[in-house]
Design a binder for these strands. Structure first.
Lengths: 346, 346
DNA sequence: CTGTTAGCGCTTTCAA
DNA sequence: TTGAAAGCGCTAACAG
């Protein structure tokens, strides 16, 4: 087989017109069973597959979804990419991947709209599009979905960060803790992530609900990194009246905190209890209590709803009812808050 | 802007033919500066972008690369995907991502060739295509590149796993160790990865080169997971004459080993030294000596050479000289083999 | 330097 | 149930 077979080759071989080949191969009705069989046979013999580009030109549909992520090589996002890829594959859609990386990349994306005219739908993961960006997005003329963030008029799937954080802190309170610190917030976050603020809110509400005071000294920036978590834990340990428990708004920061606590010669959870957020694979390795979010579940839910929307017509308008789905988080109690649940090995 | 502008709209607005628009916008020569300016202006005013599908149909080139990985959500692969995406983006190529996941997905991929007729080139990451699979790949009629594996007739970029492992073990020997164990091999690896065998070979050669005996009891399966590493370390610790050092063929396994050693109440590196492979981000967190491989560097090198090949004509034949690039690994000495290099905090 | 024209390989009326 | 023919929106000779 020198050059790939085209629809004409199949038509000739099956002794029918190209129109019939097209219909037969796509499973359209009004094709005689015998004819269809003959066409299918010819197609397999020639190893024929329709050229997607010709089909796209003719139909206007691309069978491709653009997936836009801030980063590729970070746990959360690679989980999302993986789940989206699987869902799309199952629906015979192609996945066009685009990574923003930084402010510059983000600006370039929204200015050039490089996915324009090449996807049927767009999925934006975990960053908040500005009003201008949304407008720019709308010039693509295709439906889009937001993962982790809610915006009126767009599909979205997310978790309730406030509730998740609330649950984590309530767990600590239930354990008898009264001085509970928060390691969170990244004051120089370039993507405008919303979870940090929500998780802080959940922390504050849980304290307030339990009648505990909010102490600004107990709220520190962790920059959502291991080292940031470690640094801010040291800061907390230096406090005259140090906390007995810490809620870190991400597992990375929690692990940093764990390291700092151990380095100070203190025990976890006896001297200080620690709980994180996400259920990153490392959380288990560090025997860290945390709030699990169903990352793949969110991705699958959103992808499938976007595909359903395309199938249903694909107009841009989204009804209130269908727009937003909120998935549950789950409190995972391990040894870092409850000694009785400690994993066997260090 | 209701429906997206097409080339005719631009032509009309600029008062030229569509051919001139095409030429002007693609920066082809033989277009008067004034004309080009007029066309560009019209294009921006209309927010015009050429439909990639029409262009692809007409030229036969897709400006798209297919990236085929065994997994998406694992450190190594997400690093590769990230680097490839960046390289392609810089060259204005699109990235079509495909994940194999398991035997079944792999079979489906090579049977259906879902990337056929939609990419100009293919990148296969870290799995060894069988002869049949390579044949199937060749029906795509486009050049391809292999990351991490060498195959005659295909582009490839990789590291020398044998040499890397050799270096790690030589480091241990240089430290005075004489009984050195190997944690490696995954007897049920579905992807046919080649690094495990090569790393074992490097281990054996280093011992032999130093005149040390090979003791089969010191070579255990680690399954390339944390828990596998932990289990096999326990096995090694139970040996009557236990090793004083361990080379784990991946950082994950090394970390498992570290946990098992600590759980047994032994000190690292005083009682047992541990070195891993890869320089996974966790290696630093565990103060683990390791062999760093330039993951992104490999991906970028391969991608750029594939793009260069496409630009140069894109025929399938690959000369011996251009085919294979081997990048250097780097020995990273940390506290798990050398106490004097210990990181400050645990 | 620019315009005309013939495809690229499909899908989709419209007729038969 | 099938075929002929007209696009889809571009690029690439070929003239001029």
């Amino acid at each position: 087989m020198g050059v790939a077979a085209s629809i004409d080759d199949v038509a000739r071989r099956a002794g029918v017109s190209i129109a019939t080949v097209s219909r037969a191969l796509r499973g359209l009705p009004d094709v005689a069973a015998a004819t269809r069989a003959r066409v299918m046979a010819a197609a397999t013999e020639l190893g024929y597959v329709a050229s997607p580009f010709a089909a796209r030109l003719a139909t206007g549909r691309t069978s491709t979804i653009g997936l836009v992520v801030p980063f590729i090589n970070r746990w959360f996002f690679s989980e999302v990419i993986n789940a989206v890829e699987a869902s799309l594959r199952a629906a015979s859609f192609d996945l066009l991947l685009y990574s923003l990386r930084d402010d510059e990349g983000r600006a370039r994306f929204f200015e050039l709209m490089p996915l324009r005219k090449r996807v049927d739908g767009v999925l934006l993961v975990s960053f908040l599009p500005s009003y201008k960006e949304l407008e720019s997005l709308s010039t693509m003329g295709c439906p889009s979905g937001l993962l982790g963030i809610r915006r009126p008029g767009l599909l979205s799937t997310r978790i309730d960060d406030v509730a998740g954080a609330h649950g984590a802190v309530a767990h600590l309170i239930g354990l008898g803790h009264r001085r509970i610190a928060l390691i969170g917030d990244d004051p120089k976050d370039p993507m405008g992530f919303t979870p940090p603020g929500d998780r802080r809110r959940g922390y504050q509400r849980a304290l307030t609900a339990a009648g505990l005071p909010l102490d600004p000294a107990l709220e520190v920036h962790g920059y959502y990194t291991v080292s940031g978590g470690s640094d801010s834990m040291q800061q907390l340990l230096a406090l005259p009246d140090r906390p007995t428990a810490v809620f870190a708004a991400s597992d990375e920061m929690a692990i940093g905190a764990v390291k700092a606590i151990r380095a100070a010669g203190l025990r976890i959870p006896e001297d200080i209890a620690v709980i994180g957020f996400d259920d990153h694979p490392m959380a288990q390795m560090y025997d860290l209590s945390t709030v699990r979010q169903p990352v793949a579940g969110e991705a699958v839910d959103l992808t499938e709803r976007l595909l359903a929307k395309l199938e249903a017509g694909g107009d841009l308008a989204v009804s209130e009812a269908e727009a937003d789905v909120v998935l549950d988080t789950e409190l995972i109690v391990r040894g870092s808050t409850d000694a009785s649940r400690s994993a066997p090995s260090s």
